[in-house]
């Protein structure tokens, strides 16, 4: 073996690893894009649900929608994994401890974070709740530093903060005057949501050291859907909503299509998280807020306000900083 052949092998190996990481970045962006699509489609599907009273609108409908979204996405993923010959991998994974970790991640990110998010909005108001829950990538990044020992460079931190500010600008709603006595409880629930989503990613990535992300996300979606259906929906009267939707083919079809986008998005997110790390994966997934704006303007004739443009611009700049090192990008033939 001569030196030049050795060097060529090293260069080829480095290129293979760099291409793999670049694919991970694109997968992360794709997860954000499809999650934005899911948000818009889910909004359309929710518009087809008949009015069931004010009480139902706060908890029953959103939680029933979350349940249908996760369960149907889990079924889509089951079809995907089944046709690819990976069905038995699901059973094998569930018999190992890392598989159980993915189930716990599902509970944190599914019922706990979703429930906290809805309760936060209802008790503390959207202005505070949405701002707090938008911080989940920072929680994920901090936890990944502590538990996964993932190193996060300052450029990625700056990009992440810019993206979060952009997301807050887009979703900001002026606070209503007068704090209720349950305000701080609402803040607590919103914090629980941010913690739940951040912890989900870290725990799932830990489990995915030994489990295929395609299987992990299937387990995650089915676990979350089943727990919401059995333990949460009966408490809030959510089954009335689900049984109503099932009898309406158009509404049910709309939820199924939205869930397909959710399944694809989650699949991409889990894959990106394992390949490029939790901090980058979460930040790139966070571009869904911007994609949501783009899809709403393009397909729903939503007016493009100055706030939406500024917020989306910040998300874009932030995500670019997370994904690409400007110094290397501008080098000749630069590696991103």
């Amino acid at each position: 073996m001569n030196t030049s052949a050795n060097q060529r092998a090293i260069l080829m190996k480095e290129k293979l690893n760099a291409d793999f990481a670049r694919k991970g970045v694109l997968t992360g962006l794709f997860s954000g894009c499809t999650w934005g699509l899911n948000s818009v489609l889910l909004g359309l599907a929710l518009g087809l649900v008949p009015i069931l009273g004010e009480e139902a609108a706060i908890y029953a409908i959103p939680l029933a929608a979350a349940c249908m979204n996760d369960s149907l996405a889990g079924l889509w993923l089951l079809i995907y994994n089944g046709t690819a010959g990976r069905f038995q991998e699901i059973i094998r994974s569930l018999k190992t401890f890392p598989g159980i970790m993915v189930c716990i991640a599902a509970l944190l990110g599914g019922p706990i974070a979703n429930g906290g998010y809805l309760l936060g909005i209802s008790l503390a108001g959207p202005a505070y709740a949405l701002t707090i829950t938008a911080l989940y990538p920072i929680v994920g990044a901090l936890l990944s530093r502590i538990f996964l020992k993932q190193h996060i460079v300052p450029r990625v931190w700056v990009g992440m903060v810019l993206s979060i500010i952009g997301a807050i600008v887009i979703s900001y709603v002026p606070p209503e005057g007068g704090n209720s006595s349950v305000f701080y409880l609402g803040i607590l629930f919103a914090s629980l949501a941010a913690f739940g989503w951040g912890a989900e990613a870290v725990l799932a990535v830990y489990g995915m050291s030994m489990i295929d992300p395609k299987i992990a996300i299937n387990i995650r979606e089915l676990t979350s859907g089943i727990v919401l259906a059995i333990f949460v929906l009966p408490l809030v009267g959510g089954w009335a909503v689900v049984s109503k939707v099932i009898t309406m083919p158009v509404a049910f079809g709309a939820f199924a299509v939205a869930a397909l986008a959710a399944g694809v998005s989650y699949l991409a997110w889990y894959k990106a998280n394992t390949t490029i790390g939790v901090a980058k994966g979460m930040a790139l997934n966070g571009t869904y807020v911007m994609w949501g704006v783009i899809f709403s303007v393009l397909f729903l004739d939503q007016p493009l306000t100055q706030t939406l443009v500024i917020g989306s611009g910040l998300v874009l700049v932030g995500a670019t900083l997370v994904a690409i090192n400007p110094k290397e990008f501008f080098k000749k033939g630069g590696e991103a």
Partner: peptide
């Protein structure tokens, strides 16, 4: 293998043509 390597669980110190 590339994912395991990206998660710093295995090394790829040896490469040949």
């Amino acid at each position: 293998l590339l994912d395991l390597k990206a998660n710093f669980i295995i090394d790829d110190n040896d490469a040949v043509i």
